[in-house]
Nucleic acid binder design. Structure first.
Lengths: 226, 226
DNA sequence: TGCTGCCGAGTTGTGTACATCTTACGTGAA
DNA sequence: TTCACGTAAGATGTACACAACTCGGCAGCA
């Protein structure tokens, strides 16, 4: 095969990336709650591979601070601890503002349609929203808005910080420590504001709106710190 | 053994970190020049281990953009390409400024003595400095100044960006495309300015001085872009 | 009853043989 | 001479057996 792809059209790195994304999703949606012990061999069997590639994926998740492996003990999902993640959260606030300064890129009409779709989904949240489905929507919005900058290192760091800190919200939302209706309403308002700013082609404004909302969300979480 | 350390008092992760730091050093000092092919088994033998741990270290270096592994071909040291690293360089400029805002920490007298020592070494550069020894000094200075913030995620990202972009300077310095005497003089002046700012306990000023010099260094490199 | 020490189950870390892939080289035919 | 093709060498990727390590439980003793 001349294009270097495997049987299903996927290269080796694509399979690794798929496993990594799947596990990250499960951890951040609390399917794998903090403290849960993961089994290398069980996960390897589930993904139809052996321990060796799975260990590489888990090592990357450990670098990203989502799991922790200890010799002889196991691979444990890290605790979504507020005090340890406060620094990451504040860095995320500042880096979000930079998306409007470093290599901003004006999206095409396809993007605007995607955003409009996301806004509709956000409108549905007030009716039939669960903390988990809301987090899933928030992830989709994040991935979309990340495309507003072409600075690849910045996108990489922001993605890492996002998935590091996102569990803090979901943990407290499930424990009913947050006013969910207010959270949904604020989020919808943020998306509408971003939509307006995009129609003005003001990407710096989009970044500032995001920065403001991440900062405010941080402060709301701060009222329930552990 | 109750403390969990090995024979030489080093844990497993310490050995991995040591191998990673050694290889990173060799790459960034151009002992392993861009395009050079690394052999997993040769490196494993040199460090007295097998391919499995060495592959984990190389995978991390690949994440950091210093090498690239291709199935069936080899593990190649990446090219220090200006156009690809320009985004990383500009992000580094902005993040350096943040060290003065996010969790700055005033150093003790021991730190000031270390800095004074580094300034002395910088003074020697004008007399007997090579591009490589200058880069080594620059690395030591970078590691020292990184301690001026306690924000661990910020330190982590800055370290990554530093080692990603540092080779750009050394490559051009060796090709004699830079005025080395001027580079040494500017660097010494930067360190003296930082020393003064530290005596005023103005960490924001220290960050701005660094930011300015990284930005100016970027512009000097820009005159010789490939 | 409580404490101590040993043992075994289970986990991650390591070593190694094998699979898969790319590339260079040599060979033969046009 | 030149081009096409097969083949072998050598690289990374994978699978698996074994080593190193932690921890809970249980037996034995004071």
């Amino acid at each position: 095969m001349s294009d270097g792809t495997g049987d299903s059209g996927l290269t080796v790195k694509d399979r690794h990336a798929a496993m990594h994304a799947a596990l990250r999703q499960r951890i951040c949606l609390l399917d794998y709650p903090p403290g849960m012990q993961l089994s290398e061999i069980t996960l390897a069997n589930e993904f139809g591979t052996s321990r060796t590639p799975m260990r590489r994926v888990l090592a990357r998740l450990e670098e990203e601070g989502l799991v922790q492996s200890v010799h002889g003990v196991g691979t444990i999902v890290t605790d979504a601890n507020f005090t340890e993640l406060e620094q990451a959260y504040r860095l995320r606030v500042e880096l979000t503002a930079l998306t409007g300064l470093l290599d901003p890129v004006m999206p095409d009409t396809t993007f605007l349609a995607r955003l409009k779709n996301l806004i509709d989904r956000a409108g549905q949240m007030a009716v039939s929203g669960t903390p988990k489905s809301f987090t899933q929507l928030d992830m989709d919005v994040f991935q979309a808005l990340l495309e507003l900058t072409e600075n690849e290192p910045l996108r990489h760091v922001l993605e890492r910080l996002y998935y590091q800190t996102k569990r803090l919200w979901l943990v407290r939302a499930i424990k009913a420590e947050l006013d969910l209706e207010e959270e949904y309403r604020i989020f919808l308002h943020e998306l509408e504001a971003i939509h307006i700013a995009l129609q003005s082609a003001d990407l710096a404004a989009v970044a500032q709106i995001q920065r403001a909302h991440i900062s405010m969300s941080f402060n709301r979480l701060l009222q329930h710190r552990d």
